[in-house]
Structure formats: structure tokens, C-alpha cells
Design a protein around this nucleic acid. Sequence first.
DNA 1: AGTAATTAGCTTAGCGCTAAGCTACTTATC
DNA 2: GATAAGTAGCTTAGCGCTAAGCTAATTACT
Lengths: 174, 174
Amino acid sequence: MSTSKAARTPTDPVDAIIDQWAAVRPDLDTAAMEVFGRVFRLSRAMGDRMEKTYARLGISRGEFDVLATLRRSGDPYALSPRQLSATLMLTTGGMTGRLDKLERAGLLRRSPDPHDRRALQVTLTDKGLTLVDEAVGAGLAVQTEALSSLDEEQAGQLADLLRQLLAGTGRTSR
Amino acid sequence: MSTSKAARTPTDPVDAIIDQWAAVRPDLDTAAMEVFGRVFRLSRAMGDRMEKTYARLGISRGEFDVLATLRRSGDPYALSPRQLSATLMLTTGGMTGRLDKLERAGLLRRSPDPHDRRALQVTLTDKGLTLVDEAVGAGLAVQTEALSSLDEEQAGQLADLLRQLLAGTGRTSR
DNA sequence: AGTAATTAGCTTAGCGCTAAGCTACTTATC
DNA sequence: GATAAGTAGCTTAGCGCTAAGCTAATTACT
């Protein structure tokens, strides 16, 4: 399909909000909203879509994150609850709940750590491995499709700008 | 296919995750993660910072959103709970809770709609108006500071790419 | 060795959300 | 004018999270 429409997007919901602020508070510098307003909306919209995608396979997005972290860690697909909660920026209480659900579903297994009797090893089962391999493919397909609004050069440019912004904000954080 | 890594970019957490996937699942096309992985992380990091910023003024981020929506609507700063929950993509149950808290804090007021006895009018109090005006300034300051990792041209470019991506994904949704 | 401090994982209370269902009121249809 | 359908706002049950506190095991200090 050729893009016969004008490339200039007239206004989106974020532009509308910024215009509203300009009307009631013309003193405000709203330039940063142009970026972060869209980051927040994009994150929510895509997050909802990922949620639905994983739901078709019977897991939540948070549960997918656990399985994917184990899968990414490579053979033997074993990490401790502590490592998982640190990676996923989750409290240990939250992780206990996720592991409970995933273990009940037969997607992973908790076994004692042979070297530290306080610790556990969380391991992907065959069923869990199969499921996460399917889920990661499905999730990436959704993201790839969403990204198709941009051509390859634009996507690369966007990724670079986001990397730079993320690096800067990470440092200044609490 | 992925572009070759530029040596000047010191790899961020998202690059690390992509590399991990490449090691265990070299068949995956992870290009979309370069964008959405960063969008998710940026949204969470900035969301946490906004939360802390508003917390100093005694409100949560969700409560700020309610006050800000009323403020943006202009004089007389009155909307119905239904309008608010639609704008903020929140169920009516969730909105009831937010309004309860904000009303108890004296930041807004619920009064009967003179034209529809089912409906209410939610109005900003003077105290609420003062507080939201301070909060929006504080929030924008945090966002502006975060955006300072980019120069003005880059920020504009980033906003344009995000607008285009958001427009495309919004339509394909379901 | 003996004791203190740290760490792993779990439990509980509380919070804010959604989904579903309720009552009161309004609008549309005959 | 009566009745059906739709709408506004609230309530409740359930879910997943955090913060705080617990026990058991490990490590560090003397």
C-alpha cells in the first residue's frame, strides 16, 4: 500500500490534552508531555494487548515474565525466587504468589537448592518450556505488527532515541 | 534483521535481554523489543517518579489524573463521574473510590446535576484548584528534567515517531 | 567456639483496581 | 400513559500488588 494520505498527523489525543492545558494554563511548558504522554499511552495500550495475547495461552503478563526470565537464563532454566524478584522488580511477596500459580499449573517446579538450605531453585518444566516458547513468539508477533506503522529506519531511530532517554533517566532516578 | 551494534552505545538492560534471547532462541525476530522493551521500562520508571512527585503533595498519581482532568476542562471545573471514568479509562467502581478519597480530602465536591437526577457534577474546590496547579507544575518539571538527555531536535523527532506509532497501534487494537 | 548481623522465602494486612450486579432515574416505543 | 430499554453511580467479591514482619539458615565478627 502506498501512503497516499498526508504524512502529517493532524492531532492525536495527546495533542488535544496539550491544547487544553494551553487554553487554561498558557504559562506551562508542556513540551515534555509530547514525549512522556505518548510513552505512557503506548505502554498501556501495548500492555493491554500483550495481556490478551498471553491470556489465550492461559497465563497473565506477569506470569509470562517469570517464565520468560527462566527461559532466557538458558539451560538448565533454574533461578532462585530471589533472583527472579530482583530481575522483575517485584517484592518477594508478589513473587511467592506468581510462583504458587505457575507451580499449580505445572509450568515450573520449586526444589531445594543443594548449596544453600535457605534457598530454592525454580525450574521450568517441559510443559513450561513449551508454553513459554509459544508465548514469546506470539508476543513478538503482536509487537512486530504494531511496529509496522514505522519503516525500518524510523524504528531504528526510535529505538536509539529511547535508549538514550532511558539511559539518562535511569541515572537521575531515586 | 538487526543492525550492527554501534560501539558508542554502551548497551542498556534491554540490549542485554535481547542478547540473552539471541543466545537461546536465535530464530526469534526481536527487533520490536528494541522499541517496546524500552517503552515499557521508560513508562514504569517515569511513572514511579511521577508517583513520588505527587506523593509529596499528598495525592496519588491516579488522584492527580482526576484533578488534572477537571482542571483542563476549564471553568467551572465540573464533569460527571461518568465523563471522568471514560476519559481516564477507568471502571465506574474505580472512579467512585478515587472521588471518595478526593472528596474526603476537600479537593473536590460532588453535587447533584440540575438537569439529570441520576447524574452528579464533580467540581474542583479552591483547595483542589490550588493543589492541582502546583502538582502539574511539579510533574512537568520532573518530565522536563528527564527529557534533558535529548536536545530539542531529538525530542521533537522522538515525539513525532511516537505519535505515528501510537496512531498506528491505536487503530489495530482489539 | 559463640554471638550478631544478614539473607531467603513466606505470611498477613491493606490498597486500588476490575467485573458483575444493584437501584434510581431517564428516554424511546407503542 | 404504560412499559421496555438504556444510563448514572454505587456496592461487593476477587485479584495482584506492596510493606512489614516472621522463621530458618547462613555469614561475619570477636
